[in-house]
């Protein structure tokens, strides 16, 4: 890299909001694989590598069981020996779906259920929910980019295309 280009790179990357622009850019490519959206039915679904008989709709893991009759469930075999498809949806849903950026900024009413479904899959497959924090780290410098990334990371368990 030439030194001039290197300086441009550093300045661009240091600029506040660079992270936000990068993530938004990726999220807002409507035709990309990561395009936000949800089926009209409202089902959120994961494939769990277990036999259908091993997943009991009346005895779901705690994160989903906590929803009680506020959700309905659908369990069916995944084709090709890929386990079992577990689908859940809120019995009372607002119209419309949240955009990709909204899912990472806390504006998605299905975010909590999406996170609960992921945790349920981990509990069934692995037996516990993976934790990361507290992870050792040094001094956090207060920057707009750092704050934006922290906010996105905090919301990410509820976001995504699930």
């Amino acid at each position: 890299m030439t030194s001039a280009l290197g300086n441009v790179a550093s300045l661009a990357a240091r600029a506040g909001g660079a992270v936000v622009r990068q993530v938004r850019s990726a999220l807002e490519h409507g035709s990309g694989a990561g395009a936000p959206g949800a089926p009209a039915s409202g089902w959120l679904v994961v494939s769990i590598y277990r036999e259908p008989a091993e997943i009991d709709a009346t005895s779901l893991p705690a994160p989903l069981a906590a929803y009680g009759d506020r959700i309905e469930t659908r369990i069916r075999p995944a084709p090709g020996g890929k386990g079992t498809e577990l689908a859940v949806r809120l019995t009372q849903r607002s119209s419309g779906t949240a955009s990709g950026p909204a899912r990472l900024t806390g504006g998605d009413p299905q975010g909590d259920l999406r996170s609960a479904l992921r945790k349920a899959k981990q509990l069934i497959e692995v037996g516990e929910v993976l934790a990361v924090d507290p992870a050792p780290h040094g001094k956090r410098t207060a920057t707009p980019a750092g704050a934006a990334l922290e906010a996105v990371t905090k919301r990410a368990p509820k976001g995504g295309v699930l």
């Binding site: 993530v23 899959k121 990410a156 368990p157 509820k158 976001g159 699930l162």
Partner: peptide
């Protein structure tokens, strides 16, 4: 279990970022 280990479904607690970037975590 199909030896595609780097594609693990349960390797990160915050898959929303990579799902948004690549379509899957």
């Amino acid at each position: 279990t199909h030896d595609l280990w780097s594609l693990c479904d349960n390797g990160i607690p915050n898959p929303g970022i990579t799902e948004a970037l690549w379509g899957q975590g």
